[in-house]
Amino acid sequence: MTQGATGKLKLVFRSNGKQTSLAEQYYKLPLQVLPPHDQDGDGTAFVYFLNPSGGILSGDRLCTELLADDNASVVATTTSNNKIYKMDDGYAGIYNDFSVGDHAALEYLPLPTVPFAGSNLRQENIFRIRGSSVLFAWDILSPGRWRSNEIFAYDRFDSLTKIYRDGRLIVCEHILVEPGEKTLTRICVMESYLTSASVYLCARGIPLSLKDQIQQILRSSDLRGGMTFLDREAAAIRVVANDPLLLQEALDAIWTAFRKQVLGKDGTKIRRY
């Protein structure tokens, strides 16, 4: 059994009514966080998670806990793709647990997880929100190093996303793929597409016009997808694509539309260089 690294990140964001700041933090490499900055100019804390080791190896366990306390506003993203290296045995684990307090907002926009050929990953994204919280989060399934024609060559990819609202489970998405079984290319699953994304939006009063705008973004990008309301305060967007870069552009446009229509503020460009 491979001995890996155990990285930990614990972050608590609090608002003083005008500005959200990182009130508590603890990290253990290979997980780290850059100091937050106010990119929106409205007190929202922008943070970047990073992994200075460059990628994830067998036996690694990376655990992140984030709390956006009541009234806090946080945008969290990553500095690079999450590269999951080839593993001779064992697996890597990524466990994210995000809590969003009353009238708090979390926008979680990680770059794609890229499982290399022969990798084995177990990932969990757990979101615990309140009825008055706002959540915008996406998860992108990458085929692997597609530019090198390494497509769905990983051994196993197991990703679980759960959203609890006021303690009740409202969303559970479990992606469990072992490409060797050739199930991915079946009709109903990935068919002929290379990459897929799930976006979850939770907020009171999501306008119906947002759905029209998002359908328009997807149509103009020539992507297959759509938006659906799971209940009055939660919606999901599903997209599949053959060009991961085109998918990312569409997701950025969807995020901008969400910000304008739900948060009432402009979109912004996330700089990673």
Binding site: H174, L176, V189, M190, V240
Partner: peptide, 19 residues
């Protein structure tokens, strides 16, 4: 805990069916 519900293209067909 091992049940998988990953059928993105069927989900998209279901979403598009609404309209």
């Amino acid at each position: 805990s091992d049940v998988c519900n990953f059928t993105p293209c069927l989900d998209i067909a279901s979403v598009k069916h609404e309209d």
